[in-house]
Write a protein that binds this DNA or RNA. Structure first.
Length: 426
RNA sequence: GUCCCCAUCGUCUAGUCUGGCCUAGGACAUCAGAUUUUCAUUCUGACGACUGGGGUUCGAAUCCCCAUGGGGACGCCA
């Protein structure tokens, strides 16, 4: 039975690269009907905090990753590691240096691993130094407790980042010395920033929390991450966890480091946003508005209409707030270039005021009726409807882009619309 | 410095294992047109790559070697 694990260290947020590692482990487990376990690597007691662990677990669940069995904490197993190290000292494979336990690296051995992603990779033990197993302070060193625990948890496949590839021969030697069965390894290439450098804040964010706050949908983030280093085959790109579970094959993963492309993530998020039901987006939008200190006392049904109008035009939920600010009071942002182009010309002002006068007589302020009035005026004055539409759009929203003009007018309401038009035309 | 991994459009990738079907396919981005007498959507098209050099072979993006480039690791961090 396949058993894999994700082993976060609760010393910080969940990194987007770690999330991807967790994701592929999870998919691998589900694909093979195995178990996906969580192990908390909190050996650095000073830096580990429970709030980080809470956040990591919350983020994993948010992404749709659940785990089997109760997670274990390494901080509670120090005596297990010490006992294992003690045995190696007794058998002469390790020695002590003060309080520390150190593994003696055998000379001239070639350690070959058959990586699920890279194929055969070999290392010479002459290039590797003796390894600390237990530090002077009594805490275990990473490579050692990792092996002890993976064996304890009966992990069959270790899928992790390429940064661990060079740890692998050391760990293989530990399995061997401890008389344990070595699991299969699969090292996935690391994700880099768009410029090839280590992924950092300036590339758009490194933590899952940042993407959540920015208004990315978990399904979109997961979908994008799935496409980094793996391809579902054919020309398929949009797929969810459930479909990935059906067709995932680790042999199809590439060994090539991928650059994180925020543009494509945005596009993908837009795709998911456009498909999502407005009701599901409602609480998320409310959260965005609260975060932006726009405590709109806007009834849900009105907000739902706005969401329906805008979710196909935004790429992240955060974009909703600035895109719709003109619906919430007069303190909205104004596109100066748009004003220059559509509101400055005297003839535009004239058209705007004429249209406002016309609208004053319209009682049924529905978008269908408004459009009718606009088209009629254009015909009467023998001008293109665009000559009316553009100035009006800028006048009532301050923007050159947005939802359909007549829908915006309907939602804004007669008095607001006319007031803004007359102010802009003055 | 030593060891390890990797190398197809700007980016993610298909194709590489099992050489010929590849005048190298798709997606994002960019640009141009069409549709919508507004915004967005949608549609069409354009741009655009096998890192270089040697081999092997009738034939190489695909196999081998070297170089170059990128990344990772060499912690009593995890």
């Amino acid at each position: 039975m396949v058993r894999v694990r994700f082993a976060p260290s609760p010393t910080g947020y969940l990194h987007i690269g770690s999330a991807r590692t967790a994701l592929f482990n999870w998919v691998y487990a589900r694909r093979h009907g195995g178990k996906f376990l969580l192990r908390i690597e909190d050996t650095d007691i000073a830096r580990s905090e429970s709030r980080f662990l809470d956040e990591i677990m919350t983020d994993l669940k948010w992404l749709g990753i659940n785990w089997d069995e109760e997670p274990i904490n390494q901080s509670k197993r120090f005596d297990v590691y010490r006992a294992a190290a003690e045995n190696l000292v007794k058998s002469g494979k390790a020695y002590r240096e003060g309080e520390a336990y150190i593994f003696r690296m055998p000379a001239g051995r070639v350690i070959e691993i058959d990586d699920m992603i890279h194929g055969k990779v070999s290392f010479n033990t002459d290039d590797i130094k003796d390894q600390v197993m237990i530090k002077s302070d009594g805490s275990p060193a990473y490579n050692f407790c990792c092996v002890v625990d993976d064996a304890y948890l009966k992990i069959t496949h270790i899928i992790r980042g390429d940064d661990h590839l060079s740890n692998t021969p050391k760990q293989v030697l530990f399995y061997e010395a401890l008389g344990l069965k070595t699991p299969e390894f699969g090292h996935m290439p690391l994700i880099m920033g768009s410029d090839g450098a280590k992924l950092s804040k300036r590339h758009g964010g490194v933590s899952v929390e940042e993407y959540k706050a920015e208004g990315y949908l978990p399904a979109a983030l997961v979908n994008y991450l799935l496409l980094l280093g793996w391809s579902p085959g054919g020309d398929r790109e949009i797929l969810g966890l459930d479909e990935a579970v059906k067709i995932f094959d680790i042999k199809n993963m590439t060994g090539v480091q991928a650059k994180f492309d925020l543009q494509k993530l945005k596009w993908m998020n837009g795709e998911y946003l456009a498909k999502e039901k407005a009701e599901n987006l409602l609480p998320l939008i409310k959260r965005q508005m609260a975060d932006a200190a726009k405590s709109a006392n806007c009834p849900d049904d009105a907000l739902l209409r706005l969401i329906d109008l805008y979710r196909v035009r935004i790429k992240t939920l955060r974009e909703f707030v600035p895109a719709t600010d003109h619906f919430f009071g007069d303190g909205y942002s104004v596109d100066e270039a748009g004003v220059e182009k559509h509101l400055k010309p005297p003839e535009s002002k004239k058209i705007l005021l004429d249209f406002a006068d016309l609208l004053d007589k319209v009682d049924d302020f529905s978008h269908a009726r408004l459009e009718e009035a606009c088209r009629l005026m254009a015909e009467t004055k023998k001008i293109k409807a665009g000559r009316i539409i553009h100035p009006t759009r800028v006048a009532i929203s301050g923007k050159t882009t947005g939802a359909g003009l007549f829908e915006m007018m309907e939602i804004l309401g007669k008095s607001k619309v006319i007031e803004r038009m007359r102010r802009a035309g003055a």
